[in-house]
Design a protein around this nucleic acid. Structure first.
Lengths: 251, 251
DNA sequence: ACTTGACCTTGACGTTACGTAAAGGTTTAC
DNA sequence: GTAAACCTTTACGTAACGTCAAGGTCAAGT
């Protein structure tokens, strides 16, 4: 049987370019060339190509394959064992790489959550400022200048112990919120407990709690992606769920 | 601090060519170029290069690194996680390759030892023929035609059981020979036992044992690479060692 | 002032195993 | 006769540089 490039290519599942390339580098020469300059391959070439494909599929490079098949005293198993060594080395390198990538990921994630926290500390300040801007006048009218100023000073003047308490409260809020979400009901007991925890948490920052301010804050949480990003860490949609719970809570 | 290509290269442990290449592809442009056309890098470029090296060491390609560092909304951990996926895929492919190579090795080894055996079966025939050619006349004179013919017929007429016995004897010979080689002394007891085993083995093929024929055969073993290849499987140099032992043995 | 040696520049080829045109000749089928 | 399907060679592109080659610049020593 005689084959042209395309026929042989189809037989072996490779492109004609590949066959021409193999001819070019002397890896697989056609049996002969016909009067029109076409490459003609025979049975022996089919066999040789099978061999080539075999080694190629094992990831051996063409130069090595050529050496293997050209050398008269060719030790197939030795070549394969050498090749195997190379592969094992490659895998070891890959493993090391993966390890490093893993390390980097967890490291940057730690950094991320650190900076997330820092950012949120900033957000809390915004929260206080916001409250001051929106309700400051009203509160000042109600309670007088001094008490309000004292309130704003509260955050900055918190002791470490107090700060730890707030953090604990926040952790509790997160745990409670997650459990509440599993029930799926923002009017349920767990969700209402979460809203209460949020109120308590808020009272560390605001001296004068009001339902309107709480509701306004809840809306702001859901609208500002800096807040949603922080609360949605609990579970996607947690911010909105908390808002709903709070709105029910204040009624 | 300002750096030329070489200074920066030394600082980062990379070649000047690499820095020029990074400039060329727009990955790391120098801070400015001085009046003589020299590339001058500053502190910001050092930082950027550190970043580049970091990702490069994790095996990320330069194009991706460029994208990562150019994009304003770049999620480092997501990129790393994507990269990790790619690495895991690569490793899976490598594992599959190694598996296939392993399979091929053991397969070809089985084939090899099979064909080795077949070849040796052929060699044994040569052995008999050789004996016939060299000593045939002499033996025929001594013992008459019929006995010699019977001898040559022996090999072909061997029962399976007998054949298994010969194989066992050969295995024993190999084991013994290996042990003998560890002593290093072809005149020692183990080596002489090996020579005796070889005589017994030989007597399965030859009806009429003679010291001269045994010695001649030993020499032939060492000279013919088809035999050395077979016996040297025990250990390199085993054929010569056996020859030496036999020559001492027949004295 | 001159030279030497260390530095810098751009340009260009080589590496692997082909993919992908482009430009042009051949064969086959209608 | 012609169009489609084949074949050919030539050559550029890929990733990330290494390695010359040819030539300009700078600091130091004579």
């Amino acid at each position: 049987m005689e084959y042209t490039v395309q026929k042989l290519g189809q037989l072996a599942g490779i492109s004609t370019r590949t066959l021409r390339y193999y001819d070019e580098i002397g890896l697989l020469k056609p049996a002969h060339i016909n009067s029109s300059g076409y490459r003609i391959y025979g049975a022996a070439e089919v066999d040789r190509l099978q061999q080539i494909m075999f080694y190629r599929e094992l990831g051996v490079n063409l130069d090595s394959i050529k050496d293997m098949m050209t050398s008269p005293t060719f030790d197939g198993t030795k070549a394969l064992r050498d090749h195997r060594e190379k592969l094992l080395e490659k895998r070891a390198q890959l493993d090391a790489l993966i390890n490093n990538v893993d390390k980097s990921i967890s490291q940057t994630e730690r950094k991320m959550s650190m900076s997330d926290k820092e950012k949120f500390e900033g957000f809390k300040q915004i929260l206080v400022d916001n409250n001051e801007q929106k309700y400051g006048k009203e509160i000042r009218q109600k309670y007088g200048e001094d008490t309000v100023n004292a309130s704003n000073a509260k955050v900055k003047g918190m002791t470490e112990e107090q700060y730890a308490d707030v953090q604990k409260l926040e952790d509790q809020l997160f745990i409670n919120l997650k459990a509440a979400m599993e029930t799926g009901d923002p009017a349920g007991e767990l969700a209402q407990q979460a809203a209460d925890l949020h109120k308590q948490w808020l009272c560390f920052y605001w001296d004068h709690y009001s339902k309107e301010a709480h509701a306004g804050l809840a809306e702001m949480y859901a609208a500002d992606e800096r807040f949603t990003a922080y609360y949605d860490k609990v579970q996607p949609g947690a911010t909105e769920f908390l808002r709903d719970a709070i709105i029910i809570y204040i009624k």
